[in-house]
Design a protein around this nucleic acid. Structure first.
Lengths: 242, 242
DNA sequence: TTGACTTATATGTCTAGACATATAATCGTG
DNA sequence: CACGATTATATGTCTAGACATATAAGTCAA
């Protein structure tokens, strides 16, 4: 006998249970520290099997909204107020999503033996060959970002012969390297002469910097630095509220 | 008869299945587009019930590593190379995590009727009272960030009487507002006179800006702008690789 | 009071089924 | 050949059990 199934069962049962609990947490009805009803109580309330409420609670635990402790129960977690999910979209997707025309231009490309600076930047010890690429992304023919990239040819030999004059190296890598992990570092600088010219901004104007370091199973793939005009571009990160 | 359970079963079965598949994806053995064995095949391979492999695959789907399509099967997804999880930690936690001494200093605090600019910043229509707070966070007595915050008193009446001279408003809110959602915007500016003085940097030096807008169930709580010296501070975002 | 031992219990995982549902593939028909 | 109807099938959800395990709480002795 399911009593609390008032809402039309458009979503599935476990999703409704999850949404139900989530709502109570987000509205503050169940504040941090509050004990969620035990699984057997929810089973009784929703008139379903334990596996169903378990699935709902497990997902809430995975989303860090609740904490589950054996023998003790499930508790609303304190919000990690200041953590966020930042989505740095693919450059083309990012620009077209703004309803603007994407443009790409290769500025420089060079294959060379890795210098000490290159090795340091890629985080590799052994000497080897690398490709250094400089290019520019634009939106409606206005410079949007300049990209300065290093690809380790020991990890991605094909990059030596790839044609980056039409396809951005980021897109090319996305299609040629199966799966990667990455670390981003965000900082700010002021534009030097070269940057100012490339982005068509004033020398001394603020720039947002994203350094991305990418690897696959402990093997370095690429290191890239993206420079955005700081006053026009914005990264938006939305806290995952479920 | 479980054949492929070679590894010692320290973790649980579904976790081993998940890790197994994840490894093949991350190493590139199963590239994007590759079809994962059907559930019934995995059931046979691991000698377990369907619910167990289903749990493993569901979690991989939730992590966006695979895509599941009815009748067709489960497929390795193309890596969303450039999306990332950015963790903006609590200021105190962030600084102490760096092994540095956290310092806090209230610069200004004022309760006032919301001006048009305040309402715009908070995204509210009706006039009401707000608290405006300016403060500074430091690491080892060196300025780390300046904070400029607006709290909507209609949502958080207690903030009118809270003592922000010792406790940073961020921490106070964390303990007094049950659960919130937030949106972050990251940009770069150059320091003006006031900022330069507060952060003890040169006028014209780059600054990283984080604007955070926080609400709870469609109700505005606070809007805050954090300014970091751009060359010394870095936000690190790690791609979730599972 | 303190520490070691025991017990009760909530969660964690797993099973062997079931029916629902979306859709790829096939089959027929015009 | 093109297009609509049918069918087969993989996933999605759910059940009613089971045993494992961590641990809060209670018990008892030093």
């Amino acid at each position: 006998m399911s009593l609390a199934t008032d809402t039309t069962d458009q979503p599935t049962l476990y999703k409704r249970i999850r949404a139900d609990i989530e709502k109570r947490i987000l509205t503050g009805e169940w504040p941090p520290g509050h004990r969620i009803p035990f699984e057997h109580e929810l089973v009784a309330r929703y008139g379903c099997s334990r596996m169903t409420v378990n699935k709902a609670l497990s997902e809430l635990a995975q989303a860090d909204l609740i904490e589950r402790r054996r023998r003790a129960g499930s508790f609303v977690r304190r919000p990690q107020h200041q953590s966020a999910v930042l989505k740095i979209a693919d450059m083309r997707a990012e620009i077209t999503a703004l309803g603007r025309a994407y443009g790409y231009e290769l500025i420089g490309r060079k294959v060379r033996a890795a210098t000490a600076a290159d090795r340091d930047r890629l985080g590799v010890k052994k000497a080897g060959k690398v490709v250094a690429i400089t290019c520019r992304h634009s939106a409606d023919n206005v410079p949007f970002a300049v990209e300065d990239r290093l690809i380790d040819l020991a990890s991605v030999p094909d990059a030596a012969t790839a044609d980056f004059s039409r396809e951005p190296p980021g897109s090319w890598l996305l299609h040629h390297v199966p799966w990667t992990e990455a670390e981003h570092t965000i900082s700010a600088i002021v534009a030097d002469d070269r940057t100012a010219e490339a982005l068509d901004i004033a020398v001394g104007a603020p720039c947002l910097v994203i350094d991305r370091y990418t690897w696959r199973s402990a093997r370095t793939i690429t290191a890239v630095r993206l420079l955005y005009p700081g006053d026009s571009h914005r990264l938006v990160a939305r806290f995952k509220g479920g």
